[in-house]
Simulated assay, not measured.
Amino acid sequence: MVNAKSDPPRERRERARPQTVPTGGLGKAKLNPFGDLHTLQHLSARLARGLRGVFEPLLREEVRAWAEPLAVQRFADYRAERPDKLTAWLPLGMDDRTALLVLDGKFVLELLDLFFGGTGAAPADMPAEFSPAAEAMVARLGQMIAVPLTAAWEPLARVSFTVGRCEGNASMLANLDGDDALIVTRFGIAPGSAKPSFIDLVYPVSALKPHGTALTGKVVAKAAAEDALWQTALTRAAMNIRFPVRSVLAEPTMRLSKLMALQPGDVIPISFGQDVPVMVGNDRLGTGTVGTSNGHAAIKLTSLASLEGLTQ
């Protein structure tokens, strides 16, 4: 019997995660009222790029960060899927609503050891609860992640994220019931070629409902508001640009032999019609009639080139 080759190790967390959500039967509410979640997935990809700047200083090396596909679950199912180990549940105030940052306890203790100059090793026997120093580390992580999170949401909506109190037990979280629908966004954090750790950013569906219109839109980015003062200053500057304006009364021609024989006092006859061209640079502005104004030679405009095609 020939042994089959083992599959290469996978970086993605080995657990089944639903990619689509059934609409539900009669009498059941839909878990996801937003339809496809492409906009939120795009937002998560933006956040993943920002997480590199958060974890590289903490892990002291280059970090690979990515966003995994979203999942929509009930809170009770999400809790049941998580390993029965120490977990940090950190509420993130989302204006007047709440999201959750969920961190594996082992990852938190590794970061804590690095922060105090260690090698980044977690205890062999994991404690049953977080120490005050570990809770402070979780709060610090929340504050650091809130910065790129706010920037990632900026094209979609202006949202302010605030850090709550870390809980080691999910049952202590306020305003979350087992039947509440959640949108789970998962991020992989891998220093160098090491095995990745995962953090979850969990949005209750109720917290996203105020942004439902933006989440179901096809365009994430929005145009920046026009600066009226800048527009006015630009217009004034453009209006003050100076152009040379000239009129060509006549362009007589003569043979080279006669041109070479010209002497001071010779007269070159010219003739021109009633209207003469008026030029701005090399472009024709229009035509005008030669005359005088206040004792000075002048040209009265009779037509503009830019309007000739409109007036006929």
Rank of each mutant, 00 (worst) to 15 (best):
R10V: 10
G286K: 09
H296T: 02
T20P: 06
G192V: 10
G118I: 00
D275H: 07
P132D: 14
P57R: 01
G105W: 06
L307D: 14
T287M: 15
A181Q: 11
T213E: 15
R17I: 15
K300Y: 00
D275K: 01
P57L: 04
C166H: 11
E308L: 02
G188Y: 01
V72R: 12
V278H: 11
V205H: 13
L70I: 00
P277W: 03
S6W: 07
T311F: 02
K106W: 13
M172H: 13
N169H: 05
E110P: 03
L149P: 02
A190L: 11
H296K: 15
W230M: 02
N240D: 04
L229H: 03
W66S: 08
P244C: 00
V63G: 09
V147W: 03
T185R: 14
A228Q: 06
Q231K: 07
L37S: 15
T185Y: 15
P191D: 02
D200T: 05
M1V: 08
E11M: 12
S197M: 06
T87E: 08
W230V: 05
E81N: 06
L301S: 00
R284L: 03
N175S: 01
S44I: 13
F55T: 09
G120E: 12
A181D: 06
V159P: 03
L176Q: 14
E14S: 12
T150N: 13
R46K: 12
L149R: 02
M239P: 12
F161P: 02
V290F: 14
S44P: 12
A122Y: 10
G35P: 08
L141Y: 03
T235L: 05
A124P: 02
T253D: 09
E56V: 14
A65M: 09
K5E: 09
S193D: 08
R140I: 01
R10G: 08
G120S: 11
M126F: 01
R242C: 00
T20Q: 10
T253L: 12
A223R: 05
A80H: 13
E68Y: 15
M1S: 08
M137W: 08
L51T: 13
R79W: 11
H296Q: 13
A136D: 08
V163L: 06
T235I: 11
G27R: 07
F187D: 11
S293T: 13
P8C: 05
G217K: 12
E226D: 08
P127L: 07
F116H: 15
L103S: 00
P57F: 09
V290Q: 07
T292P: 15
A136S: 06
I270W: 15
E62S: 01
A76L: 09
A146I: 08
S160Q: 08
L262G: 07
K195S: 04
L149V: 02
P204K: 00
G286T: 10
A207C: 15
N32Y: 02
R236S: 00
A214K: 01
I199E: 13
A214F: 06
G164V: 04
A181H: 08
P204D: 13
P57N: 01
L70G: 00
L262I: 09
I199F: 10
L149D: 01
D275C: 05
L109S: 14
G105K: 12
D177L: 14
E110Y: 07
L31S: 07
T289E: 09
R13E: 12
V280M: 11
L262A: 06
P148N: 00
P244R: 02
G117N: 03
P22N: 01
L215S: 12
P155I: 06
V21Y: 10
D7W: 14
L285F: 10
D275A: 03
